[in-house]
């Protein structure tokens, strides 16, 4: 999966699950301050990301460090990279 595909699918999660306009979905956007998610919304976000990418992230401590949309892209990218290396 390419970086662009991860960005597109992550953005789809925000559009489908939270009905956030496409124009707002920029890497520098803070998911709490700019996009308006709170701690309970993060639970919904995690579930939606798990379904979209077929990964398990619920217990991953790195979630706590996510602040921007760009952080999410990088996080998924690293998960996919870890998945690819472990399957070798």
């Amino acid at each position: 999966m390419t970086e662009q595909e991860i960005i597109t699918l992550s953005n789809q999660v925000f559009e489908e699950s939270f009905e956030i306009e496409k124009e707002k979905l920029k890497p520098e956007m803070n998911i709490f301050l700019d996009l308006g998610l709170d701690s309970l919304d993060i639970v919904d976000l995690v579930v939606a990301l798990q379904e979209k990418f077929g990964v398990k992230i619920r217990n991953d401590d790195r979630i706590k460090n996510i602040r921007t949309l760009g952080d999410i892209y990088k996080f998924i990218l690293s998960l996919k990279a870890e998945g690819a290396s472990s399957s070798l």
Binding site: S17, F18, E19, G36, D44
Partner: peptide, 8 residues
């Protein structure tokens, strides 16, 4: 509505 949509 979803909780997110409702609150907004």
């Amino acid at each position: 509505l979803t909780p997110f949509k409702l609150k907004n």
